[in-house]
Simulated assay, not measured.
Amino acid sequence: MGLEAEYSRERVFNTPLCEQGLVGFGIGMAAMGHTAIAEVQFADYILPAYDQIVNEAAKYNYRSGGQHSAGKLTIRAPCMGVGHGALYHSQSVEQLFMGVPGLKVVIPRSPIQAKGLLLSSIRDPDPVIFLEPKILYRSSVEHCPVDDFTLPLSSAEILTPGKDLTLISYGAPLYTCAQAIEMLRNPSSTISAHISPHLRTASIELIDLRTILPWDRETVVESVRKTGRCVIVHEAPVTAGVGAEISAHVQKEAFLNLEAPVERVGGWDTPFPHVHESFYKPGPTRILDALVRTLTY
């Protein structure tokens, strides 16, 4: 708010609601050396611009042999479910970009993370897709520093250390993962009343990926080698999701350390529903079940 008044309409302006056009415009600005931040109002509507992003922005540096680049382009887009967005306003599209060399994909979990990661994205030499979980706009509160600061891209953060299981997520589902861990430890919870007492003392290592392309393989593999168990959570469908890529790499690099199959918890393989979004998204009960299955395998 107030950006146009502070920086003028020369730098801050609305565009027509044409995603292919506004992203293409941003690529052109970046190619000319300007810093361009393009906002797609909902990540669901980034698909008309998919050709521009994949075939132009991501390849511009490579195809010119490093002479030209669209690396000064950052594309912001709200993503994930908000409770009433339905099939065109609640989708998670990050997995559509995981196989695109030349891009970076970042998803913050909180205001401080959003500011530090966004400033890093804007200054990064590669074009960045910056996906903001929309449900956190009004539910995630922090005292965010007003000073300029950055947080490293492609560097996962261990939120709670542990030794018995590695729980991996990013964005809004991290808070649901924390709920599931609390339910596991809480004997008074009716949902988890059946859980054996020895499981309640399990030490869970919760990791926020922050960047999913390229993701922090070293931190994840080191954690799984230590714990021997791994659960991955995301809102996007399980099939061909972020969890599929991570689990494939984990079993390759930490196969001899695994005590259980890598478990994935995600959205169902259906379009995002019109109603009952909470039944589609991975809730704390589904995550808790995955933790128990993995710990007791």
Rank of each mutant, 00 (worst) to 15 (best):
A156C: 08
L47I: 14
R76T: 00
Y280T: 02
D216I: 00
V40T: 05
L117T: 00
H68G: 02
I112G: 05
I122K: 07
S120A: 15
D51S: 12
L103H: 06
S8F: 11
P145W: 09
K59N: 05
Y280G: 04
I46C: 11
S192W: 07
Y60Q: 03
R200K: 13
G116L: 01
V238P: 01
R217Y: 09
P145N: 08
I135V: 13
V128P: 06
V221G: 02
A193G: 04
V141P: 00
R9F: 00
M98G: 03
R185H: 14
Q41N: 10
T227E: 01
I287P: 03
P261L: 04
L258Q: 05
H34F: 09
R63G: 02
G71P: 06
P101M: 07
Y280A: 02
R293L: 10
D216P: 00
L22S: 13
G65N: 08
S196T: 13
I168R: 04
C177E: 01
V93F: 04
P125V: 11
E10A: 12
R293N: 14
A172V: 10
G81A: 15
E6A: 15
R138Y: 07
K281G: 00
M183E: 12
T35A: 05
Y175F: 15
T35G: 03
V221F: 09
S247F: 09
F13V: 07
H249Y: 09
E222D: 11
V40M: 11
Y7D: 03
Q251C: 12
A38R: 06
Q41F: 12
E10G: 12
